[in-house]
Design a protein around this nucleic acid. Structure first.
Length: 491
RNA sequence: CGGGGCGUGGCGAAGUCCGGUUAUCGCGCCUGCUUUGGGAGCAGGAGGCCGCAGGUUCGAAUCCUGCCGCCCCGACCA
């Protein structure tokens, strides 16, 4: 095994795959398309879950849990929804195995289900089927439910954390009395995701609306958060859907308003997945390995004592333990690595690979001077500070690293965003993966598909809250365009 | 589903064309000693139905047939 990772510039996807394996985040499993998330990777997911879960609850949502298995008939009630997912559904047809005379184990042909069950690719149908019973009056609204679950989408080609057959995610499903309220909810949760991205993942997300062609099957409107990866490709990291009354009508979910009239409710759904971890890797990490924002790092500081003379060993060890305790008292997660079977150089490389934001070294020199040496993972900067200032300094450094990563990502995005006004420049920009390419588009699906077929570029979103709304001419057809949209090659 | 490639100790590979005694190397693992400020050194050791099933042969990792699995490229897609 090479000590070095493949470099990003030479082979970005080899770098990505190798990093995940080497860091111990995840691995491909025996089941095709599914991944095993290893403890370190899962610890990051748990950090994400904890922060997001409390943000979701703070906005008035409650967690619940709905079944993994969905009757085919439920699934088929909303036409657009079925069409969108039909090609990637795993279907359960039998409920029993049996042993044959030659000891072979087979699916018992007698045990055929009367109605096939779908492994949920998303839970709208089974949830709206319950909502019919839960909602009667406007007093039952809004109904704000979230669930943490796994879903199954039978993908042809998979990549760790980015596209797998089984996905861990969070899916919110809400019901409202009015269209305006549901639309507001859709946008509110989009904002919540983007804020979470900024504050925790240290990733700047571009908020926007999906085109008709790219939107969720079953939604009236899909909003997205799009991020730009270091290789210039875009990643859709989360979506929030305004469902209109589609599922309410499909599942007959009505309520009585204050005036005593019966109305269909308005719905939303929104979700983010472990794809966030993929975004995290491809945004911040480098050729030495993972780079984690402190707020999501399972270990924020690693302490490495370096012994030279046996006489100092005890003193160093005690000092290191004292530092560990002090940091813990200040809610900093810390690991003391005093193993003697690896040399310091090995440990340095190891914790850089794992993306630990800060390394604290205490050796003979530090002990003599009552100091510690700190190294930042994000910049490689090394500084020696007095030992009694360690906790204070580490606290500010962790905050610095968190904001530096965000700043760096914003700068990268700005440097990789361009405007083009003709198709040739467009093709050139996309071919060299220039990042987000802002261009005029005539608004037709036909044009969108032709551009995709010719250049592989897709419309990532029609941005919200920006200053791109000056009219122009479509780069492909020359037809009038109300505004620029964001094109990119995407994952 | 098309096109290409690959299955050999935990991992990565050599050996396969042209069959030959005990299957090789690196990493990792175990034991011991010496080491410790950027992936330590030496010595010893464990670990293999060479993807599976048949066949050819005195003899198969190697040749033949069939099967299974995985990866890459396309079509498809969060």
């Amino acid at each position: 095994m090479d000590k070095q990772l493949p470099s990003r510039s030479e082979n970005f996807s080899a770098w990505y795959n190798e990093l995940i394996k080497r860091v111990g985040l995840a691995e491909t499993s025996a089941v095709r398309g599914c991944m095993t998330i290893r403890p370190y990777g899962y610890a990051i997911w748990e950090k994400i879950q904890a922060a997001l879960d409390s943000a979701i609850k703070d906005t008035g949502h409650e967690n619940a849990y709905f079944p993994l298995l969905i009757p085919k008939s439920y699934f088929c009630k909303e036409a657009a929804h079925v069409e969108g997912f039909a090609k990637e559904c795993a279907v359960i047809t039998h409920y029993r195995l049996k042993t044959e005379e030659d000891n072979a184990i087979i699916v018992d042909p007698e045990a055929k289900l009367q109605e096939e069950l779908i492994l949920r690719p998303t839970s709208e149908t089974i949830i709206w089927n319950s909502y019919r019973n839960w909602i009667q009056s406007y007093r039952d609204l809004p109904l704000l439910i979230n669930q943490w679950s796994n879903i199954v989408r039978w993908e042809m080609r998979t990549r760790l954390f980015l596209r797998t057959a089984e996905i861990l995610w969070q899916e919110g499903h809400t019901a409202h009395a009015t269209q305006a309220e549901a639309e507001e909810e859709t946008r509110k949760m989009l904002d919540l995701y983007a804020d979470f991205g900024r504050d925790y993942l240290a990733i700047p997300f571009l908020k926007g609306r999906k085109t008709e062609y790219e939107k969720f099957s079953g939604a009236e409107e899909t909003y997205t958060i799009e991020a730009l990866m270091q290789d210039g490709k875009a990643l859709q990291a989360g979506t929030s859907h305004f469902l209109g009354q589609r599922f309410a009508k499909a599942f007959d979910v009505k309520f009585t308003n204050a005036a005593g009239q019966s109305e269909y409710v308005w719905g939303t759904s929104w979700g983010v997945t472990t794809r966030f971890i993929g975004a995290l890797i491809m945004t911040h990490s480098d050729d030495k390995g993972l780079v984690l924002p402190p707020r999501l790092a399972p270990i924020q500081v690693v302490i490495i004592p370096i012994y030279k003379t046996p006489a100092n060993k005890t003193a160093l060890h005690q000092q290191a333990q004292r530092l560990q305790e002090q940091l813990r008292e200040n809610a900093i997660t810390v690991k003391l690595d005093d193993r003697e079977d690896h040399k310091p150089g090995w440990k340095f490389a190891e914790y850089e690979l794992k993306g630990i934001p800060l390394r604290l070294v205490i050796g003979e020199e530090e002990l003599a001077n009552q100091s510690v040496t700190l190294s930042r993972r994000d910049t490689g900067e090394r500084l020696t500070i007095p030992m009694d200032k360690a906790v204070e300094k580490i606290t500010t450094l962790l905050a610095d690293i968190q904001s530096n990563l965000y700043e760096r990502a914003i700068q990268f995005r700005e440097a990789h965003t361009c405007e083009v006004d003709d198709y040739d420049s467009f093709k050139a920009a996309i071919a060299k993966k220039a990042g987000f390419v802002l261009a005029h588009w005539d608004g037709s699906t036909e044009t969108e598909q032709k551009i995709k077929a010719e250049t592989q570029a897709t419309i990532r979103c029609i941005p919200l809250d920006d200053n791109l709304s000056t009219p122009g001419k479509c780069i492909y057809t020359g037809n009038p365009s109300a505004r620029r949209v964001v094109f990119a090659q995407a994952y």
